[in-house]
Simulated scan of single mutants.
Amino acid sequence: MVGYEKDDILSPNQKLIAGCVSGCVTRFITQPLDIIKLRTQLQKKPATGNRRFFPTTRAILKEEGVTAFWHGHNLGQLHSILAVSSQFYVYELTTKYVMNTIHPDNKGFFLFFCGIFAGCCSATLVIPIEVIRVRQMLVKAQYGGILSGARRVYASGGILAFYEGLGASLLQMGPSCGISFGVFKFVQPLILEYVAPKCQGEHCVHSTSGNVYKPEYVLLASTAAGSLAGFLAKTFTYPFDLAKRRLQISSHVEDPSVKVPKTSKDLVRCHNLFDCLRLTLKKEGFLGLYRGWKVTVYKAQMTSVIAFSTYEMICHALRDHLIPKIP
């Protein structure tokens, strides 16, 4: 199970392996949706519902080819591995402390803040990588590889350019992770109790080591709970996600010697979080705060499902194959 469990024989360090693998798999599968989401969020043209989703996808495919959907993928892998593994790792450590020290009546409240703290730690850790990656996803030719991208970002605004959008990232990632972990940890056990009996007897040699349910039931429950967690977390925090992206390109300057894709031109950019939200609301209305919401929710649900399910399956496999069986 995600979070600290008293009978689990996996240590937080061992679960870190599961977090790294989960992050790697999640990024590879969801990268194309991230490209579409980003460019939809930053376009100045009205974009509501799916009206910009399919045109943006077709434009990228026609002008830049299928590989464009994986622009910034190397940095994305590093970003995802660090982000997902740090979220799970910090959540494991903080929930262990809560479960062992906090009165049972107050645990739910503190477990939610464990998720917020995990999200804030993750956001602070990966924000420099995210800034470079976002710009690579917009204009790959201008920002090149990791080192050349870092040099370009530094040249555009100094060391502070790597932390553009940090405030919005903390306000988005903290509550988002709190909601995501909280919903998942509440819903997954309910589904498991409903669809699957606990493993007992000779069929469940690890019933006292963390693998209480069979893997197929864990996968089903993790998929359903992860989908709901991703939907709720992203919906409640989406305006900050939109602002974060627009802040992360605030110092970006187009290089006239580099061909800029049509979907990366005429971008909306911000320099201040609250001004960004205020101006978006003023110029685009309330729905402007949710530009690109549909593709973002699809991506968030897919990310949540893959991340949680992969994490649970890797932990299950580690208990089964890497740790001596308990008689």
Rank of each mutant, 00 (worst) to 15 (best):
I29Y: 02
L10M: 12
N100D: 14
L10E: 01
P32R: 12
P32T: 11
S11M: 04
Y89F: 14
H103D: 15
L33M: 15
A59W: 04
N13I: 09
D105H: 11
N13L: 14
N50F: 13
L38M: 11
I35N: 11
V21P: 00
F69L: 10
S22C: 08
F88L: 14
Q77D: 06
G65A: 13
T95M: 02
F88V: 07
D34C: 05
A47F: 01
R51K: 02
R39V: 09
K62H: 15
H71C: 09
I60S: 02
G65Y: 14
R51A: 15
G72T: 04
E63V: 11
A47S: 05
C20M: 15
E63N: 09
F28P: 01
Y91V: 05
T101R: 14
D34E: 12
V90W: 00
H79G: 08
I81W: 02
A83C: 10
L16H: 00
P12E: 02
I35E: 03
I60E: 04
N50Q: 11
E63M: 12
G23F: 05
C24V: 07
V25Q: 12
Q31F: 06
T67E: 13
V84W: 03
L75Q: 08
T57F: 09
S22R: 03
L93F: 05
R58H: 14
V84M: 08
N74G: 11
H73Q: 08
S22Y: 01
T56R: 02
D34I: 13
A18Q: 00
H71N: 15
F28H: 06
K44N: 14
P12Q: 00
P46E: 15
Q43T: 15
V84A: 12
F69M: 08
F54I: 12
Q31C: 09
I9H: 03
Q77S: 10
K45S: 15
E92P: 04
V25T: 13
T94Y: 03
F28L: 12
Y91F: 15
T57M: 13
E92G: 05
V21S: 08
K37D: 01
T57I: 04
M99Y: 03
S11L: 10
V84G: 04
F69G: 06
N74I: 13
T95S: 14
P104R: 13
P104H: 10
C20D: 04
Q77A: 12
